[in-house]
Amino acid sequence: MKVGLMGGTFDPIHIGHLIAAQCALEAAGLDEVWFMPTNVPPHKKQLPGATPEQRWEMVNAAVEGHPAFRAIDVELRKGGVSYSVDTVKLLMQLYPGHRFHYIVGADMVQYLPKWYKIEELANLVVFIGLSRPGYGTEEEALPEPIRDSVRMARMPLIEISSTEIRKRLAEGRPVRYLVPDRVNQYIEVNRLYES
Score class of each variant (00 low, 15 high):
residue 173 R to W: 07
residue 143 P to K: 04
residue 150 V to Y: 00
residue 181 D to Q: 15
residue 136 G to A: 13
residue 130 L to A: 02
residue 128 I to L: 07
residue 125 V to P: 11
residue 123 N to D: 14
residue 140 E to Y: 13
residue 129 G to D: 10
residue 183 V to W: 06
residue 183 V to H: 06
residue 151 R to E: 11
residue 139 E to C: 12
residue 155 M to Y: 07
residue 140 E to L: 12
residue 174 P to N: 13
residue 177 Y to K: 07
residue 134 G to Q: 05
residue 166 R to G: 03
residue 135 Y to W: 14
residue 179 V to H: 02
residue 172 G to Y: 02
residue 138 E to V: 11
residue 181 D to M: 10
residue 133 P to N: 13
residue 181 D to T: 12
residue 145 P to A: 10
residue 122 A to G: 05
residue 151 R to A: 10
residue 157 L to A: 15
residue 182 R to Q: 13
residue 148 D to K: 15
residue 137 T to N: 13
residue 175 V to Q: 02
residue 132 R to H: 03
residue 174 P to M: 12
residue 153 A to E: 03
residue 163 T to Q: 00
residue 173 R to S: 11
residue 147 R to C: 01
residue 167 K to V: 08
residue 145 P to F: 07
residue 155 M to L: 08
residue 123 N to Q: 14
residue 174 P to H: 10
residue 155 M to T: 13
residue 126 V to W: 11
residue 119 E to M: 06
residue 164 E to T: 12
residue 139 E to K: 15
residue 121 L to R: 08
residue 141 A to R: 15
residue 165 I to A: 01
residue 162 S to N: 05
residue 153 A to P: 00
residue 175 V to E: 01
residue 158 I to W: 00
residue 133 P to H: 11
residue 120 E to F: 09
residue 120 E to C: 08
residue 163 T to M: 00
residue 136 G to N: 15
residue 183 V to R: 08
residue 125 V to K: 08
residue 130 L to E: 03
residue 158 I to R: 01
residue 136 G to P: 13
residue 150 V to C: 06
residue 164 E to C: 08
residue 154 R to I: 09
residue 174 P to R: 12
residue 184 N to L: 12
residue 139 E to Y: 12
residue 180 P to I: 05
residue 147 R to A: 06
residue 178 L to Y: 00
residue 176 R to E: 15
residue 180 P to W: 04
residue 149 S to Y: 05
residue 154 R to K: 13
residue 151 R to C: 11
residue 184 N to Y: 14
residue 152 M to I: 15
residue 138 E to Y: 15
residue 151 R to F: 09
residue 165 I to F: 01
residue 131 S to Y: 12
residue 134 G to V: 05
residue 162 S to T: 07
residue 156 P to I: 04
residue 142 L to G: 03
residue 169 L to D: 06
residue 130 L to S: 00
residue 175 V to N: 01
residue 118 I to H: 05
residue 131 S to F: 11
residue 175 V to M: 04
residue 141 A to V: 12
residue 174 P to G: 12
residue 135 Y to L: 14
residue 167 K to L: 09
residue 168 R to A: 05
residue 138 E to K: 15
residue 123 N to T: 12
residue 164 E to F: 11
residue 124 L to D: 07
residue 151 R to N: 09
residue 120 E to S: 06
residue 115 W to S: 01
residue 179 V to D: 00
residue 163 T to I: 02
residue 133 P to W: 10
residue 151 R to K: 13
residue 145 P to T: 05
residue 178 L to A: 01
residue 175 V to L: 00
residue 114 K to N: 14
residue 167 K to A: 12
residue 160 I to F: 00
residue 133 P to E: 14
residue 163 T to K: 03
residue 152 M to Q: 11
residue 182 R to S: 13
residue 130 L to Q: 04
residue 168 R to F: 05
residue 160 I to T: 00
residue 156 P to Q: 01
residue 177 Y to D: 07
residue 138 E to T: 14
residue 133 P to S: 13
residue 146 I to Q: 03
residue 120 E to Y: 08
residue 167 K to F: 10
residue 115 W to N: 04
residue 127 F to V: 03
residue 181 D to I: 09
residue 161 S to D: 00
residue 145 P to R: 03
residue 117 K to P: 05
residue 172 G to M: 07
residue 169 L to T: 11
residue 134 G to M: 05
residue 128 I to N: 04
residue 135 Y to C: 07
residue 180 P to M: 03
residue 172 G to W: 00
